[in-house]
Structures are given as C-alpha cells and as structure tokens.
Design a binder for these strands. Structure first.
Lengths: 167, 167
DNA sequence: CTAACATATATCGCATACGATGTATCGTGT
DNA sequence: ACACGATACATCGTATGCGATATATGTTAG
C-alpha cells in the first residue's frame, strides 16, 4: 500500500507540474490553460468542429462549447457555419491570432517534459518509459476486468498494449 | 519528443483512471470527488481547520471553504468555532455521518491503484517505482533550475529526493 | 413525403477551482 | 491601550467542467 500511495502522489505531482508549465506559457499570452489547449488544437487543424475538439481534448462537448464561446467573444477564434452540415460550425483562428502565433504551439505541452527527460541518462529514460508502459497496461487490464472498458476516456496511442477495441 | 509525448499522455491517462475510480466510490455515497476527499481528510483528523484541509488537499483555502460550506449545508459536516482561536473553525463529521461511515475511507484513494500493482510481478512493480522516482526527481531538478522551487505546490513525501527546503 | 431517430451545438444548473478582497482575530512591539 | 502586520475564514467574480436538456438540422424507415 505504501508503494501505491507513492505512485499515486507521484502521478498527482507530475500532473501538477505539467499544468504549471503549460500555465506559465499560457499566461504570457493572456489565456487560460484550457483555452490554450483549444487554440493549439484549432491551430493544428486549421478548421475543426466542436465535436472533434471535444473528442481530441477529452472534454465534454458542453465544456468545449463554453470555452470556444469565450474565445470567440475575445476575438481569438472565429466560428463559421459549415455549409456541408448546417448543424456544425467550423472553428478557426482569427486573422490577428493566426498572424502572430508561434508556429510550434503544438509542441509546447511536451516541451518541458522533454527537457526534464534530457536531464537523465538514456538507461534512466528507458526505466521511466518501461515503468510507464507496465503501469498503463496493468491499469488497462484492471479496467477491462472491472468493466470500465467502454469508458475509452483516453487512448494512449503510443502504446499498443492489449487494446483491441475500435469505437 | 516522441518519448515525452508518450509519458505525458500516460500521466494524463493514469490521472483520469484514478479520478474515475474515486468517482465510482464517491457517487455511490452521493457526493462528488472533492467532497469525498474533504470528508476523508476530516474523518482522518476528527477535527481539522480549513487551513489544514487546504494544505493537505492541495487546494486553495477559498475552494475548501466553498466545499465545506456545501457539505455543512447538506448536514454532512459540522463547523464549530474554535475557542482557542476565534478566527478558526473546527470541521468535524456530523453525527449521522460518523455513525454509518466506512472505517477504511482513507485508503479508498490508493485501493484501486494497489490492486493494479498486484497484477504485476514484483520486479515489474520495482521498475514502475524506480521510473517514478527518477522522473519525479528529474522534474524537481528542472523546477529548481527554472526557479519554480518556491511553488511547493506538492510534496511527494515518500521520496526524499534532493529537496532541502523547509516549510 | 412524413414520422422517427440521430447528430451537432447551445444553454442551463450545479460543483469545483482560484485569485482578490473583506472581516475578525491574534501577536507583537511600543 | 494602541497600532500594525499576520492569520483564518468568508465572499465575490470568473473560468472551467459536466450532465441534462433544448434546438436545429440531417438521415432513414415506411
């Protein structure tokens, strides 16, 4: 149990660190973390629907809708009705934003963690990656055993594991 | 960078899994996750101040104050003015709640993760723990280098690391 | 074509979450 | 006693975050 507590707290800690790192960057641009995530995702797709944003960012559609609403009212995003499907809207960057935007935004999230890894020796990085893989696959196994399979609230795409489900 | 992306997503995934696990238990008792965390902490201390709750749960004082307020209005917690310090209030479980409460609440948080670890072989558990330690200490190192040291937004007490700061 | 169903958003209500600020109290120094 | 800073909370404003529901539009069965 001691071990589990350590791992749980470590995950909490790491999560908070990543949030703080993102926040640092976000605040410099006058937006919040979720707003930055939305902007980055829109940037990566040029034009994208609320639905897809919701799926990619693992947030509910209503949450994304609210955030996009605030960003459009701030003039950072633009909503264009989709001619193909009038229920849908195309979210894109506003002209001002797309001008002055940093081209490597999508990588901001990983940047700080990448720098952290570079502090370590290759075999240490290996250990971390292996440990992560073991833990993630064990959790997935547990989820299946508990019938949480259909949650699909997150896909760690980089690790095949035993996930065989499609959608 | 590929490696960093995998680790970031893994941490996200693990965090979400722990949340879901806690949520499962919490919802059965008609409270939310943060409420359950507050109740568990109050239970563990019998009587505790807002300040200490805030520190232990890593939430701001205002957030804790709000949650305690909702729980007291639901009759689950009781606020008693502290005679020693009239600025402070003692938070304790209501009589009804302290009767029917599950005695091992404090362990709920770690329970599911503990079960996950038991799916693995001892040497695999070792790898996970080592990887976690390496990553956490590397992050701490990075934080010091970046001057985020004074954040102290979380202490992973189980791992000494190189942290030398107090308070 | 129309009814039934499905889909994409928007909106509402509620619960975090946090910074800023106000209030009461405590401690300390004068 | 008094002033002043520190402390413990409460409250307010704003921003997520999500479930439930409403609305408009697409799709399909008959």
């Amino acid at each position: 149990m001691e071990k589990a507590a350590f791992i749980r707290e470590s995950i909490d800690f790491l999560q908070r660190y990543m949030m703080k790192s993102l926040q640092k960057y976000s605040e410099e641009h006058g937006v919040t973390i979720p707003q930055a995530r939305v902007i980055a995702e829109v940037f990566a797709h040029k034009a994208i629907s609320i639905k897809l944003l919701s799926k990619n960012l693992k947030m509910t559609q209503s949450t994304v809708s609210d955030i996009v609403e605030r960003l459009t009212s701030k003039g950072l995003l633009v909503k264009t009705p989709n001619p193909k499907d009038k229920r849908s809207v195309e979210i894109s960057l506003s002209s001002e934003l797309s001008e002055g935007i940093d081209a490597n935004i999508p990588e901001i999230t990983n940047q700080s963690l990448s720098q952290v890894l570079n502090l370590l020796k290759p075999d240490e990085q290996e250990t971390i990656e292996k440990g992560m893989q073991l833990l993630v696959s064990a959790v997935k196994e547990k989820m299946e055993a508990d019938g949480m399979d259909h949650f699909e609230f997150f896909d760690v795409v980089y690790f095949p594991g035993k996930t065989k489900k499609e959608k």
